[in-house]
Design a protein around this nucleic acid. Structure first.
Lengths: 135, 135
DNA sequence: CCGTATCCTCATCGATACTG
DNA sequence: CAGTATCGATGAGGATACGG
């Protein structure tokens, strides 16, 4: 039983895989990780964050922040006292529970890049788009 | 320094995040995981695999298998002796190195689902599309 | 059986302009 | 500053048909 598939019968892998898919969906996309990392350096205003996450548009930032907030990973505070209003985003404590996940992805990805680059030097399945080996 | 961001300066998060993005890209998409899980039950012929991974088209299966093979996660063997040819796909030993990653995603996703369902029962940010809470 | 070729739909993301 | 609205490009993924 190599992978987290509860019953010997492989019929309902769906159940076991839903959790993985959930996590993947939450971290997937182009901007979720950069935003989380950006906020891991401390609370940020909207515009600050946009500068930090280089290349993101206001539309995407707004949309992604909404999803992250709904999932409890970040917190949104509005200071209406100022003019114009100031909005601060903070990585919620719950956001730190992602650390092991990100660490696992990071560790594997790093090793994989090394492996792919080495196999490219020797002889291996031709890598047309292995994983975007840049340099 | 909460997350794997090497220098105190947050300027070049890109380097640290590339590995994560690589891993995410490799596991992302709709079919990668189901295929890997399917093959974790043992070697499979193309058609067998297509039946096991319910809903996938031949086109997608072919495409995904190619990517997985290029990245060394699976192996492709052709038995040209038979008519018609028989092709067998096997989860490579290297494929098992993904286990910790999948396990981390699985563990977090499971806890998150529980958390979201609970917060939905009490009072929390309205979840319009929290993470597709089905039931 | 093992795929590939074509065409199509739809979600994601970017660019730009605009409001409170 | 903190977003929203609108349009357009792009790519993932599906349906169907066909070839080796």
């Amino acid at each position: 039983m190599p992978f987290p598939v509860p019953p010997p019968s492989h019929a309902n892998c769906t159940g076991a895989m839903r959790s993985v898919r959930d996590a993947l969906d939450l971290l997937g996309g182009k901007w979720k990780l950069p935003i989380i990392v950006g906020l891991s350096n401390g609370p940020q205003r909207f515009k600050q964050l946009q500068r930090e996450v280089a290349g993101i548009t206001a539309k995407m930032l707004s949309k992604e922040l909404k999803e992250l907030e709904i999932n409890g990973l970040i917190t949104r505070q509005v200071d209406a006292a100022t003019v114009p209003v100031a909005v601060t985003y903070t990585l919620a404590a719950y956001g730190n529970t992602l650390f092991p996940v990100i660490e696992a992805l990071h560790a594997w990805g790093r090793e994989h890049r090394i492996r792919i680059m080495h196999s490219g030097e020797t002889t291996a399945p031709k890598a047309s788009r292995v994983v975007e080996v840049v340099a």
